[in-house]
Design a protein around this nucleic acid. Structure first.
Length: 823
RNA sequence: GCGGUCGUGGCGGAAUAGGCAGACGCGCACGGUUGAGGGCCGUGUCCGCGAGGGUAUGGGUUCAAGUCCCUUCGACCGCACCA
């Protein structure tokens, strides 16, 4: 150790030591308490950004802390390495996606190592590696064989810029989540995963996830969007068709004054063909088609529709009501058709007002200010049934059940549940993804590739046009094959999988990353799963986390995963901001980790990023703050360098005698306690670090006192290095060695604090009058209520404050405060 | 529009179970060390001369409120015609 803090020398030295000694290698050890700590793996875009540094610094502190607490910690890292940027780079720079991706991985891996993160690199995975996507294909085939993967033709979201379809989840405000291009519709035959079969479980099991932020659970809940109600059949006059609708308000059935079909509903054409209404309906449909998805879903969009010339019959009261098509009814939700009750639904109300349709109230408000016969807006609250025949007078909530029972009895409807969640469209017309391992045979239909033939390798003889169709179709060797079932000529699926599939199970592969015989040894999954702590950005609250839960449940069902939820605890870290906004190239406010590491070292970068803000909140980047962290490490370094000689021959025990000794011992033990709680229980690294700073300040003070106890000084120095080591491991290794230790601080046990040192002889008591602080006094520790009252009342200042006042009440809180209520 | 989170010094933030508001750090000021600068060390730093006041706003509960309840204002996030 030099007198000067040579961070680059220190960091290179210890990173090499860790690597040579395989310090972070983890093996399954039966009987030892395990902890699976996982950070979201990155997309290898080129270089790390500050968000990565934050994510992985949080994880690394937790990992190192847990290891010092003798957990067997699985802390892996890998690459979410399929995806569009590689392909776009290929088109732009004429470099193969494979080359581009692996170059980036090499660069980012070395950056991660340069930050000193304690990963077990022997378990590294990359989703673009055939050893990985082989098992991705295997999982897909399991889905197919269980009937959960299917192909259907449907109008799908199409991004004209990315030239591919998008899942519903990837459409944000009507635009592509990646490039913000307005998303259009295209009728295509695509592969889907039947996530809707798991909707109920995905919803119900959210309750089990007590270690997840409520915000994330709520977002998932809303996304799944379960609503309960009824399906009701309405006869269409002069047709053999029945119009099936879904409603959450069966109690309002008597208030139906018109019906609406979604414009895309298949009935529309049939019911209008050849009639005088065909022309106006087609005109309306043309007008709608013209609108983009954004316009169509905009809030401000006015209700618009047209009568189609047909009538439906209300099965409860036989009433004839007109059928409309309207822009506010969606084909994708429910049955694509609704009953309209303008009196009790605001959308229907708006539409009825515009087209001068009847408004019939069937629920009366108990609030006298609301006249349901003269509504200014829909009355959507609860009330008493009216105009509803045999149901009149009932409470409308109770009436829902009764009406459903009646519908079921008459076989005109039934109780029904609807989800907002749709099946997951997983086909992508792109190259850089896992080939879908399916083969189409004229005789046998869609047949999965034989397991023994996996992986279906990505061909390399392809053309990257970036246009419309999967590049795989341009391969001369890929498409033509034979049917695995009947042996006849057949063709391969040329689409690839959405990369979100790859990331839906990587955490399981880490448990046995190099297994070439099977996806993983079930014993390993049994040992490590579930992930105890998952850490990543909140931007994955819906997509990735929902898909990962879905995969885990499926793999659980087929016996490959011991847990039916993947992540016990979830920490969603906040964004890294600069000047109040997200760092981005276009804003020119990016601070690169590389430049910070070169200037101050990895330890300073880690320390600052953990100190500046609690992990789950946003972090405002501050160059001055980085300087401060660097200054602190220098201060620690100087302290240890100075004291090393002094404590060399110090005794290993100590007995605090003087007031200074006791204070030193107190701060030392309080810091250990605080850091243990903040890191171990709360993930509040910022306050842990401030407590370590207080310890450093106290050691600085104590060493200058008259006769510092060298044994105590030694203990303080050792404990300081130990509790600081998860945050800034390199400098701590160096200091640990410098004060005469062999080996690595990483193998040391986390220090325990001495509770007795935290008991002070005397305590400062706050004295309040009517809740306002008026005086503070020192009293002996441990006085009970009565003793405390006695001491306080003897106090001269208190006596004078109370003079001439009437004491109404006293509140005595031992070791804390004393409040006198006076008049 | 609906749902949620959150408003604390000049700044990042602390106050973990209702009990001393502003820990720790940044910045700033002054002093020391130094040939100077930087670095380092020390002192001070919510407002007010003071009594006192103070956690966006106004109210409530309580002996006691940053913390619990309600009002208003503001910021941010998610969803957005889901029948």
């Amino acid at each position: 150790m030099n007198e000067r803090y040579d961070f680059s020398g220190i960091e290179a030295k210890w990173q090499k030591y860790w690597e040579v000694n395989k310090l972070f290698k983890t093996t399954e050890e039966a009987g030892r308490k395990k902890y699976y700590l996982l950070e979201m793996f990155p997309y290898p875009s080129g270089k790390l950004h500050m968000g990565h540094v934050r994510n992985y610094s949080i994880g690394d502190v937790a990992s190192r802390y847990l290891r010092m607490n003798e957990y067997n910690v699985l802390h892996p890292m890998g690459w979410d390495s399929f995806g569009l940027p590689a392909e776009n780079a290929a088109i732009k720079h004429n470099i193969h996606p494979n080359v581009w991706t692996w170059d980036n991985i090499a660069e980012m891996r070395s950056q991660l190592k340069g930050l000193g993160f304690s990963y077990d690199w022997d378990r590294e995975v990359a989703t673009c590696h055939p050893d990985y996507y082989k098992w991705m294909q295997w999982i897909f085939i399991q889905f197919f064989e269980k009937g959960l993967a299917y192909k259907k033709k449907n109008p799908v979201n199409w991004c004209s810029s990315c030239q591919t379809v998008l899942a519903n989840e990837q459409v944000v405000d009507g635009t592509c989540e990646r490039c913000s291009t307005p998303v259009g519709k295209k009728d295509l035959e695509q592969w889907y995963l039947k996530i809707t079969d798991y909707a109920d479980r995905l919803l119900a099991d959210l309750d089990k996830l007590i270690g997840w932020p409520n915000k994330v659970k709520l977002m998932q809940k809303n996304w799944i969007g379960k609503s309960t109600g009824a399906e009701v059949d309405f006869m269409i006059e002069g047709s053999d068709k029945t119009m099936k609708i879904f409603t959450t308000r069966p109690d309002t059935l008597f208030g139906v004054t018109y019906m609406v079909l979604a414009p895309e509903h298949p009935f529309v054409k049939e019911l209008t063909e050849g009639s005088e209404f065909e022309a106006p309906v087609n005109e309306f449909l043309d007008r709608l088609q013209y609108l983009s998805d954004i316009d169509r879903t905009a809030t401000a969009l006015e209700k618009d529709g047209t009568f189609i010339g047909r009538y439906a019959v209300n099965p409860l009261n036989g009433k004839k009501v007109p059928i409309y098509i309207a822009n506010y009814v969606l084909m994708e939700y429910g049955t694509g058709a609704i009953m309209a009750v303008p009196a009790h639904d605001q959308r229907d109300f708006d539409f009825a007002v515009k087209y001068n349709l009847d408004i019939i109230p069937v629920v009366d408000s108990e609030n006298p200010d609301i006249d349901v016969n003269n509504l200014k807006e829909a009355f959507e609250a609860e009330g008493i049934m009216i105009n509803s025949g045999m149901f009149d007078g009932m409470d409308n909530v109770a009436a829902q059940e009764k009406i459903i029972a009646y519908l079921e009895e008459k076989k005109i409807g039934k109780e029904a549940v609807n989800f907002r969640l749709r099946d997951w469209l997983i086909s992508r017309q792109r190259y850089w993804g896992t080939p879908i391992p399916m083969i189409y045979c004229e005789e046998c239909g869609w047949v999965p590739e034989k397991i023994g033939n996996l992986p279906v390798l990505l061909p390399t003889d392809v053309v990257f046009s970036g246009k419309g169709e999967s590049p795989l179709t341009t391969s001369k060797t890929f498409k033509e094959t034979t049917c695995p079932k009947c042996g006849k000529k057949a063709t391969r699926e040329t689409d690839t999988m959405d990369t979100f599939l790859d990331s839906s199970w990587y955490f399981l592969r880490y448990t046995d990353a190099k297994n070439s015989r099977e996806i993983w040894d079930k014993k390993n999954a049994e040992y490590w799963m579930p992930v105890d702590q998952y850490i990543g950005g909140v931007e994955h609250a819906i997509l990735h986390l929902l898909y990962a839960r879905f995969f885990t449940k499926f793999l659980y069902d087929i016996g490959y995963c011991p847990a039916d939820e993947p992540f016990t605890n979830l920490l969603t870290q906040g964004m890294v901001l600069k000047d109040g906004t997200k760092m981005s190239k276009s804003k020119g406010n990016v601070v690169s980790p590389e430049e910070i590491i070169n200037k101050y070292g990895a330890d300073t970068a880690r320390l600052f990023i953990l100190f500046a803000s609690p992990p789950d909140k946003e972090l405002e980047w501050s160059d001055a703050g980085v300087e401060g962290s660097y200054r602190f490490l220098n201060r620690v370094h100087r302290l240890i360098f100075e004291l090393a000689e002094k404590i060399k021959d110090a005794p290993s025990g100590y007995k605090p005698d003087s007031v200074d000794d006791k204070k030193m011992a107190y701060v030392m033990n309080a810091s250990i306690k605080k850091v243990t709680a903040d890191v171990g229980d709360r993930f509040n690294f910022n306050t842990a670090i401030s407590s370590i700073m207080e310890l450093v300040n106290e050691i600085y003070r104590y060493k200058e006192t008259e006769d510092p106890n060298t044994g105590l000084l030694k203990a303080a120095v050792e404990n300081l290095i130990l509790i600081l080591s998860p945050f800034t491991p390199h400098i701590c290794e160096e200091m640990w060695e410098h004060i005469g230790n062999k080996g690595t601080v990483y193998h040391e046990k986390w220090p325990v604090y001495d509770e007795t040192a935290l008991i002070k002889d005397s305590i400062e008591i706050v004295i309040q009058l009517n809740g306002k602080v008026r005086e503070k006094i020192e009293v002996a520790n441990g006085l009970n209520k009565e003793q405390l009252e006695e001491v306080v009342m003897e106090n001269e200042k208190v006596k004078s404050l109370l003079e001439g006042k009437e004491i109404l009440k006293v509140i005595s809180v031992p070791n804390k405060l004393f409040n006198v209520v006076i008049r």
